[in-house]
Amino acid sequence: MSPAAPVRAIGASVLRAVRGLGRFSLFVTAVLDAGARPPFRLRRLLGEVYDAGVLSLLIVCVSGFAVGMVLGLQGHNTLSRFGAEESLGAVVGLSLIRELGPVLTSLLVAGRAGSAIAAEIAAMNVTEQLDGLRMMSVEPLDFVVAPKALGMILAMPLLSTLFVVFGILGGWMVGVAVLGGDSGSYLSTLEDSVAFWEDVVGGIIKGVVFGVLVGFIATFRGFTARATTAGVSAAATSTVVIASVATLIFDYFITALWGY
């Protein structure tokens, strides 16, 4: 093997990654362009919000409630060592609103709806449905992709908010109803510690950004998948992996930039 081979391999990987990013940027631009021009497909958009949002409600609410219960239990045990059990509401609320709500919702939705979007679009490619649309002079980016991506962007912050609400409820359930904490303290410390702009708006912005990430990554992976059955499964799998990693990386940068 030539001594330059590893360097060459690294260079090839970097070039591939840059090309991929370039294609992704062009794809996002084309989808935004298609979504911004009439006809505006409101009914299809609502259908996609239903698919990504309403059909994810159960998993998001149950997960939020369970995470809140764990936070309530762990928080109560830890805070009681310092005699600060009354601060449980603040701990649960801030953890959920700032970080856990948006991040875990994004991971859950990437696994449920993101993979489904990628697989559906890739399957449409395999079965020539996208070409069928093109032959009717209906642009797939406009008819299929844009509603799915925009639907995800709308659904994600709403789901994230629900996750937080059910998490706070789960924390209350364990901290107050099970472990006997004071309900008034739970709610008042929660109310006192949460700042609207820094925490609530920051959390919603994270939800929107994660919606953008999951929506565009899922549609891109589906749209550019190889037209084989293996391509369909690869699109779904890679959507979950890439969207999850992107969520965690972007979470750090948003947190740093938002000035928590």
Partner: peptide, 18 residues
Amino acid sequence: GRYRRRVGMLFQFGALLD
């Protein structure tokens, strides 16, 4: 787009939106 509006295509497996 304008050309394709003058053309119809029957795909091998139909390509109907499922």
